[in-house]
């Protein structure tokens, strides 16, 4: 059987594309599917008691699992194919092995499916979890998946819990707010606290265990459309890292890409704490991005990837387009310290952050 394998990365060939020594090119995964690449993620795959960090790539109609051959090479080990509805995004679920979820749809999510890594490498195993008008989805700790669906008058916010075999163990609903929930974020270190952002510039807070809607906090209209990439609680306040909508772009010399806001959940009062801006001379606005621990990465409209150390408060690395191709998405690996950067034509570059 012809095995599709990664190209060996040649870091010296890419040195000129980096202006920071914080990122080291490890490998390049080349998808041969020919369709547009849409997302990348990492997951754990356990077999015969051995747990390996694998990479998941998604093109429009194909999702592929790449298994490590050694520290620098990955082999495409398995693919799942979709015929009617294209893949919109990978939805990683923390705390699970051998399972990843995907959202399918054209402009909006129409289906959520669980993809199971087959033991015999042959059978295409996928389970339809939910279908309909799905607005938002996120994987949560403790093997949970949350989604919002339906119309505003009949909105459902549902939490599913996965069993060991990938089936659904339990489902329960959270009290819906009177606004459409557009994104979710778990509060770091608080497994029973869930945040949602709404289309009306509100942050809603749930108790995941009881399903109670604890609070709806209206934030400034200027945050409209922002996604919460990270949330944590400290000294009685909630801190949220949002991408900056940049509505006032051009009016200011500062070019904010991410921002930190603080919310007092007791009073609903909130305030902007910090802006994470582009270095002087850099152009572009936030297209998409990801935050892990205290590092934030964003693909900019200029095609460059920029990385911030949220503790230092400034941009620490810039990754311009490689081979004249703009970056289209970027993700932090949830299983190791790799940065996964993708281009539309299916190239995925794996960088190690040093």
């Amino acid at each position: 059987r012809l095995v599709e394998q990664t190209e060996m990365a040649d870091p010296s060939a890419c040195d000129d594309s980096l202006n920071s020594h914080d990122l080291q090119l490890v490998s390049k995964l080349k998808s041969a599917s020919g369709s547009c690449s849409v997302d990348v993620s990492a997951m754990w795959w356990e077999r015969a008691g051995v747990k390996e960090s694998c990479i998941i790539t998604a093109c429009e109609y194909v999702v592929a699992l790449w298994k490590p051959l050694d520290a620098k090479r990955w082999k495409k080990n398995y693919t799942w194919h979709f015929k009617e509805i294209p893949v919109l995004q990978i939805v990683p679920v923390p705390d699970v092995c051998n399972l990843v979820c995907v959202a399918l749809g054209n402009l909006e999510i129409r289906e959520l499916r669980a993809l199971l890594c087959p033991c015999d490498d042959k059978s295409d195993k996928q389970v339809l979890l939910k279908s309909g008008n799905i607005e938002a989805v996120a994987g949560l700790t403790k093997r949970r998946l949350v989604s919002s669906s339906g119309t505003l008058d009949d909105q459902q916010v549902e939490v599913m819990t996965f069993a060991e075999d990938g089936g659904i163990n339990e489902k329960h609903f959270l009290m819906p707010p009177e606004e459409a929930v557009t994104t979710f974020a778990e509060v770091q270190g608080m497994e029973e606290t869930l945040l949602g952002t709404t289309g009306m510039s509100s942050i809603v807070i749930w108790n995941l265990k009881t399903g109670q809607l604890l609070k709806k906090v209206h934030i400034d209209e200027s945050y409209h459309g922002s996604v919460c990439h990270k949330a944590y609680s400290d000294m009685g306040l909630l801190f949220l890292v949002l991408n900056h909508p940049c509505a006032k772009d051009g009016q200011s010399l500062e070019k904010p890409v991410f921002q930190l806001i603080a919310i007092n959940p007791k009073t609903s009062l909130n305030v902007g704490v910090m802006l994470y801006c582009l270095p002087h001379g850099q152009a572009g606005r936030f297209l998409e991005g990801d935050v892990k621990d205290h590092f934030a990465a964003a693909v900019l409209t200029s095609g460059t990837i920029a990385i911030w150390d949220l503790l230092l408060g400034h941009c620490t690395a810039l990754l311009p387009p490689v081979s004249d191709q703009n970056w289209s998405f970027v993700k932090w690996s949830s299983t190791d310290s790799h940065l996964l950067a993708g281009q539309k034509d299916g190239n995925i570059f794996v960088y190690r952050c040093t």
Binding site: M175, M190, E192, T193, I205, N207, T210, Q212, L213, L214, K215, S233, M235, G236, L237, A262, I263, N264, P265, K266, T267, L269, N270, V271, G272, V273
Partner: peptide
């Protein structure tokens, strides 16, 4: 910014809001 402008702070906000919110 000044986070002291955000009103009285409670370290147990999650438990307090859970006891106040409708079930």
């Amino acid at each position: 910014c000044n986070v002291t402008d955000l009103g009285p702070i409670s370290l147990n906000w999650f438990e307090e809001l859970s006891s106040e919110a409708p079930p």
